[in-house]
Design a protein around this nucleic acid. Structure first.
Lengths: 185, 185
DNA sequence: AACAACTGTTCGTCAAATAAAACATTCGTT
DNA sequence: AACGAATGTTTTATTTGACGAACAGTTGTT
């Protein structure tokens, strides 16, 4: 299935209100900035009606978020995959022996980073914007990674993902610890 | 700017027709499968009108593509980033010294894999579905990666991305070569 | 050539989404 | 407590998107 069969109305209803409150806008304020009427917005958040693209587009630009954010539902939790764990995937006609770490929800945005960290640098991160998820794969060295309250020790090939909207840490345990970093929002 | 200021009508007009032809559907066929009238679809592809979410949703499911694909314009090319290259990013309140390898276009889907490959295994891949892009970051060892016609030697920390809809190779040059694999579609 | 089956476009009609204003409700201030 | 300014919801009118049918244009089959 290419996308969830969920009702788009309900998704929009939820995400619209979620993003509006995240931005600290009132319903009337957002309506004014976006150039749509309060009544329209009110009904959209109530889950009734079938908005046009232009209406949603105006709202998404007013909220300063990519359009597609309004069309996706929430994501959760924390997960670790040790090297060698995970389900192997026969990737179609390709013959790679690959482990699927995380398949991508429709229309999530994943930015890729490469980091090189030293043991004396402890990296605390304040929570990012709500709904973000971070993926980390250790390439070299060892590191203590995850939520601040409960970081997990990772070795090369280990994988972890955790919500980025909570306080989290990255602490290298060896020199030149290298990690691939994927932020999902 | 969070998203291009382009007119959503034109984007939809283009992407709708692009995806329809890619799937080999006629206008009437798609309309029938999606459960929308030919006239509506005709006008949408003509760039007139302001479709409702439900209409677009029906079309996207009929085309078996994520909704957001209809809201974005085209992507290209090949790229290599050696370890140490690339623009450092001050990632907001976080203090990671991170290199941005590839920022994610709105609503692309990126699946994450971890691979361990031996020198005697040469991995040729037939082209995947059109429009896919593959990202590879070498964690350990060395490898010859990229398009079949012109693979590139990569060392730990090196990054490459290339279109996945063309024939490509992954050939490990050392034992236990480890790579992070990201397929984007 | 005539016919049938398809291509996509352009008409009226109807239902529905949008907007503006009137409507409640809560909040903060004097 | 009383007022003004917010909040978000519910009205009434108007606009407009979606449908179905009739339309013109191509392709291919007998």
């Amino acid at each position: 299935m290419t996308q969830s069969t969920a009702d788009p109305k309900k998704i929009i209803s939820a995400s619209l209100q979620r993003e509006r409150l995240k931005k600290g806008y009132s319903l009337g304020k957002l309506a004014k900035v976006a150039g749509v009427s309060k009544s329209t917005l009110s009904q959209l958040e109530a889950g009734v009606g079938n908005p046009s693209i232009e209406t949603l587009w105006s709202l998404s630009t007013a909220l300063e978020i990519p359009f597609s954010v309004l069309l996706e539902q929430q994501k959760p939790i924390v997960q670790v995959l040790r090297k060698g764990e995970g389900t192997a995937v026969n990737s179609g006609q390709a013959d790679y022996k690959a482990i699927l770490l995380a398949n991508c929800p429709a229309s999530a945005r994943r930015d890729l980073y490469l980091t090189l960290v030293q043991p004396d640098e402890i990296h605390h991160s304040q929570p990012h914007s709500k709904g973000t998820i971070e993926h980390v794969i250790i390439a070299q060295g060892r590191a203590l990674v995850g939520l601040e309250e409960e970081p997990i020790e990772l070795n090369p090939g280990d994988y972890i993902c955790y919500p980025g909207d909570q306080a989290h840490v990255f602490r290298a345990l060896e020199k030149n610890t290298m990690a691939v970093f994927v932020t999902e929002h």
